[in-house]
């Protein structure tokens, strides 16, 4: 990997922490800080937010003094398919029901890999869905509706 003139990883981390610190700090100021005797809901978060911001500054300052490496490959395809999978499950598990929702969730997740072809993904999802329905719904008796109201005609 090509070395960069300053440590970009650390610089990005520092900036991320500063931004998060400022957001939390700003939100804490909107809360009651209370008195020293009776600290309000905003007091402890404000202290932490200040600490986080300062640490972010320290990391950022340190990054300028040292060389670093490039970030390397990003899992774009992974991000695109893996993250929506649980979101889809959340959006549809009540409406579609456990069985169809889990099936589609598994297919979505499987598409994150370049090696996974659609037929194989479908087959895998069938197995996973049957297994999970047996184990979680029938076996452990979790209170899932197997088929939801969206599917009742």
């Amino acid at each position: 990997m090509k070395p960069t003139s300053f440590d970009r990883t650390d610089a990005a981390a520092g900036i991320l922490f500063i931004v998060l610190g400022l957001i939390f700090g700003w939100m804490s100021l909107g809360l009651d800080l209370g008195s020293p005797r009776r600290l309000g809901p905003g007091a402890f978060p404000l202290i932490l937010a200040v600490v986080l911001t300062v640490l972010g500054l320290v990391i950022l300052a340190g990054s300028l003094k040292s060389e670093g490496e490039e970030l390397g490959a990003l899992a774009w395809r992974g991000l695109l398919f893996i993250l929506p999978a649980p979101v889809f499950f959340g959006l549809t598990v009540r409406g579609l029901g456990f069985v169809p929702s889990l099936f589609v969730t598994t297919v979505i997740a499987a598409m994150a890999s370049l090696r996974m072809k659609l037929p194989a993904a479908l087959a895998l999802a069938v197995v996973v869905t049957i297994f999970s329905t047996m184990v979680f719904s029938y076996g452990l008796g979790l209170p899932f509706r197997r088929f939801g109201p969206w599917l009742s005609f």
């Binding site: 893996i82 649980p86 598994t106 499987a110 993904a121």
Partner: peptide, 17 residues
């Protein structure tokens, strides 16, 4: 590539449950 979709399915069920 066979394992991680299974893990994702179980994670989703687990967190929801």
């Amino acid at each position: 590539h066979v394992l991680f979709p299974i893990i994702m399915a179980f994670c989703s069920i687990g967190v929801y449950s």
